[in-house]
Simulated scan of single mutants.
Amino acid sequence: MKRWHIVLFLAPAVLIYSVFSALPLLDTLRLGFYATNDTGASHFSGLSNYLTILTDPAWSSAFWNAMGNNFKFFLIHLLIQNPIGLILATLLSLKGLKFARQYRTFIFLPTLLSVVIIGFIWQLILSPLWGVSESMLNAVGLGEYFQPWLGEEGSALITLALISVWQFVGIPMMLIYAALLAVPEDIVEAAHVEGASAWRIFWEIKLPLILPTLGLVTILTYVGNFNAFDLIYSVKGAIAGPNYSTDILGTLFYRTFFGYQSQIGSPTMGAAVATLMFLVILCGVGAYFYFVQRKLTRYEL
């Protein structure tokens, strides 16, 4: 193929990526080094915005609270969503399982729905005023355990994370399911002939072979959760209540950039928050490729 053919085919994708992704990212990084005065004029301020966010008590408390909540949000997905996805994928990959296609469809279906719709529905379900969760718990004799989980500081973030797990568990399930189907069948059959149990085959053959996929699922979970915003915003609003207990970096960026209620928006400070979000994601991805992906590559070799 001639070189100009390669350029011709790549040009539309490169152009779209540059205009809608690369250039806005670079402009955000640039804007974080500027500050605005009372007249609205901007001037170069170096690292002052970042020092303010990280050290000024008026800003740092909100930032570190959002950072901590974001890590909690991610860990719940990592420790609950991905293991459940692995279990479901393993069960659905078993030969002879009836209605396997229907199960996959039903489990994956919530991922196709809008996060706003999911948040609104679960808010209705869990509402202590008109929700059905209290009556359902009463029907099975567990009514005493009902609490306004979305309205309490100690449980609101965990509840929202579990809602997100319920919606998106189909994604790791399908990725792991595809990896399990790619395991060579002759290896599995040889292990059966040798008398290996189903558990031993999974633990010693299938699991090592799908480790790269598990690593991919982990890093996708990390990036997705540190970019999260819409579920928190649709259920708890930009204020991320109660008392900022569900505040994450996405909602903090929204309030900082656009302003909310008595807080005045600042594009330069918002760009600094967005840049810090980008650095957190970049560091996580870089650590994964350096410490994990390199070992997996050696393992495959």
Rank of each mutant, 00 (worst) to 15 (best):
M1D: 09
R3C: 05
P12Q: 08
P12C: 09
F20A: 01
P24F: 13
L25C: 08
G32E: 02
F33Q: 00
Y34S: 00
Y34P: 01
T36H: 01
D38T: 05
S45A: 15
S45G: 03
S48I: 06
L54V: 13
W59P: 02
S60T: 14
A62M: 13
G68E: 02
L75E: 01
H77S: 11
H77K: 09
L78M: 14
G85A: 03
L86M: 14
L92E: 04
L94P: 00
K95H: 11
G96E: 07
L97N: 04
F99K: 10
F108N: 02
L112P: 00
I125G: 01
V132F: 06
S133A: 15
S133R: 04
S135G: 01
Q147E: 14
S155N: 09
S155F: 09
A161C: 07
L162C: 05
I163T: 08
Q167P: 04
F168G: 12
V169L: 15
M173L: 14
Y177K: 03
E189I: 05
A191V: 07
A191H: 04
V193N: 04
V193L: 15
S197F: 05
A198I: 12
F202V: 10
P208S: 08
P208K: 14
I210M: 11
P212G: 10
G215L: 10
N225W: 07
N227Y: 02
N227E: 10
N227S: 15
A228Y: 07
F229Y: 15
F229E: 15
I232A: 09
S234M: 06
I239M: 14
I239C: 01
P242C: 12
D247W: 09
G250S: 12
L252P: 05
T256L: 12
T256H: 09
G259P: 07
Q261E: 13
S262V: 14
I264Q: 13
S266H: 05
P267T: 03
T268R: 00
G270A: 09
A272E: 02
A274S: 15
L279F: 11
L279A: 11
G284T: 07
G286C: 02
F289C: 11
F291T: 04
Q293D: 12
K295T: 08
E300I: 15
